[in-house]
Structure formats: C-alpha cells, structure tokens
Amino acid sequence: MTTQEKLVGYRRDPDSHPPLDSPEYRSTALRHPTQPLTLLPHRLTEITGPLLGPGRVGELDHDLTRQHAGEPIGQRIIVYGRVLDGDGRPIPDSLVEIWQANAGGRYRHTGDRWPSPLDPNFDGVGRTLTDADGRYEFVTIKPGAYPWRNHDNAWRPAHIHFSLFGRSFTQRLVTQMYFQDDPLFGQDPIFNSVPEHARSRLISRFDLDRTQPEWALAFEFDIVLRGRDATPLEDDHG
C-alpha cells in the first residue's frame, strides 16, 4: 500500500472475538488487561501493513508431507480456502502461516513433553501466499488431539494454528481451524471462549469434491479479515 491511496479505515468487529478475560481458560487470568482499551481511530500506520511474501516462502513450504526424506504418519489431508475481507473481496499475495501437532497430537517443541512420539518426518510448520483470488492450499496430515493442564482431563480438540496478515496492521489475525463434529469441543475453553454465534466460523468443512481419490481427504476453511469503512478518514493526513 502506498500513501497515495485513499485513506479508509476498517470496520470494528468486537462481536466476533473472545473476551481477553475468559476465566475458563485459566492462563487468561494474569494475561488480560484490566484497564479499558483506548479507542484508536485508524490513521496511516493502522491502515498500512507489511508486504511479506516473495522470498519468504519456499517451494515445498505449503506441503507439510514433503519436507523430509519420508512421509509423516497420519491421515493425509488438503486444507484449502480463501482469504477474504469483510466485504467479500479476496486478499491476494498475502502470507498465510500455519503450525500444528502431528497425528498423535505432539508438537515438535521443547515445551511439549507429553508421552506421544515425535514423527521424524513431520515438523508441523507451513507457509504459503494467497493467489490472485485470495486462495491458499496446504497439504498436511490431520493433527491429533492433545492433553493440557487447564482443568481435569483437559484435551484440545484437533486444530491447526493459522496466522494471517491481510493488507493492513488492523487486519492482522491469528486463529485456529477445527474439524467438524469434534467430541472435544464441549470441554474446550479456548474454542468456547468465542461467542457462541461465531464459533462455527472456526470449523472447516469436509469437502468430498476436493478429496483426491486414493490420496487425500479435503477440508475447506475460508478466513474473513476485517472489511473497510464506507467513508474515507476525515483527517486527510492520516
């Protein structure tokens, strides 16, 4: 984005997001601000954002099953979708980063010590750029559920972490993608921190049409970042 473009802010979307103070997710207790947030009307710094792409994404970064000599264990899946803004416009050439546990629910991370084996053929990290229509596609394996210590016998439903930049600082989003009908949803305070009406937006859709016969299942996950205000900013200086 250049400074010559018309300065237009972004619509606010507080109804979509979890409250920072979500007591059921215990780690929020000491990690949420107690002072009210200060409203920041959008100016130039908020409506611009980094162009991170070319040179940052390797040829096989979108295929998490081909990053080692052998193939990872697990159910091979295609995860694809579009990155759109809140007006339905595709966001092209935008960096999408993902990370996830392996098929047994274990992360390749020194902090993850639960007794489920690492997979020597799986790192669980992927990157890609959206195409001209905002489309992205990853090939990976379905992550397993994993235990954590939030409450008695707590398990995270299977999920893939997603990081999106969009076009502006304001559109930045980090989220998690889930799978339909996960029996662990009911006891997961992270999934349930999202207002009930918005939770379904985090669940990917099984797509039989996009499965590859004798190769991979497919799941569609569209991501919507904030849309623009109808009118330009009053302060022309940004």
């Binding site: 979509s16 979890p18 997710y25 940052r56 921190s193 937006r201």
Partner: peptide, 23 residues
Amino acid sequence: MAELPTTPSQTVGPYLHIGLTWD
C-alpha cells in the same frame, strides 16, 4: 457487496515458535 462476519481470533498457544519464528 454483502458484509461477511469476520473469523474469530484464538490464542497463539505455547508452541507459537514453531510457526511464527523467522531467522
């Protein structure tokens, strides 16, 4: 154009380094 509801945010979790660290 019709307005689309935005995707909710979720925590990066404890293993953010796997996906979000660049040299």
